[in-house]
Simulated scan of single mutants.
Amino acid sequence: MSSAGNGQDGSPGSPPISALVAGLCEGDPQSEMTLHDLLDAFSERAFGFLILVFALPNGIPAPIAPGLSAVLGLPLVLLAAQMMIGLPHPWMPRAWLARKLKREQVARMLRPSVPVLQRIERYIKPRLHVFAPADASRLLGALLLWNALLLSLPIPFGNLLPAWAIILLALGEMARDGLLVLCGLVMSVLAGFWVGFLLWGGTALIEKLF
């Protein structure tokens, strides 16, 4: 998949991921959108795109509110668990689907990720299918769930590696790019060690102080 010719699923002519993310940021800043709107817009590709959208604010430095990783981590946990058990389409609580966000809020979180995605898209293409088989959504769901749980932990500086593991896995799954999936797997292992180290260091510091 390249940003010029193929979309996120490797099909010719479909818009690149960066264009779809940028589209969420465009329009009247005071207009509102709901999670239901996103599900409708992404249709059968909703799993991959919603996971990507919820992970990007944690993976790309942006002016977001403190503690947002835990807020965005909960939908990621839910989506990843649904992938792992094999649901064909995402399910969200009705209250979540109806919650409204102003477009300017969405743009503030997602716009910094657009140039980064554009650079990544230059190198994305279907390859190494042994690491990205078409029937591996349940295994990918398990990996995504692991990282979503790490991301949800309220640990300072602990969200970046799990977020990037999720981003790489989501992009790799949508583009059938086994190299990205493999990178996401490596990042998942590193994220586990990093969060474990932060937990151990924080516990040791608390014991030393008190």
Rank of each mutant, 00 (worst) to 15 (best):
L78I: 10
I120R: 12
S152E: 03
L190D: 00
N159K: 05
L169F: 10
M174Y: 02
F54M: 10
F157W: 01
A70C: 10
S3T: 00
L168R: 06
L144M: 07
Q118E: 13
G86F: 14
H89V: 06
P112V: 15
A65L: 15
A204K: 10
M92T: 02
L140E: 05
D37E: 03
S14L: 14
M92W: 15
D177H: 12
P12N: 08
G201V: 00
A41D: 00
C183V: 14
I51M: 14
L101Q: 05
G192I: 10
F131Q: 09
A148F: 02
L150N: 07
D28C: 09
E32R: 15
I155L: 11
I166R: 04
S14F: 09
I120Q: 13
D9Q: 06
V114E: 10
L153M: 15
D37P: 01
M174A: 09
A19K: 14
M187K: 06
F42S: 00
L151M: 15
S2C: 00
L97T: 06
P29K: 08
F197W: 15
F157R: 00
P66H: 06
G141W: 07
M1L: 13
C25M: 12
L143C: 13
Q8P: 08
P156C: 02
W96H: 11
A22K: 12
G27T: 01
G10D: 05
P162E: 00
L199A: 05
M174T: 07
Q8G: 10
A41M: 05
A95Y: 14
A41K: 13
G67F: 03
R108V: 06
S3D: 03
R45W: 01
G196W: 06
A175F: 05
L35C: 05
L182E: 03
L169M: 14
T34E: 12
W200A: 01
G59V: 08
V186T: 12
P63C: 15
V116N: 08
L87S: 01
L182I: 13
R94T: 03
L198I: 15
H89R: 15
S11G: 01
R99S: 02
L151C: 12
E104G: 03
W200K: 00
S2W: 13
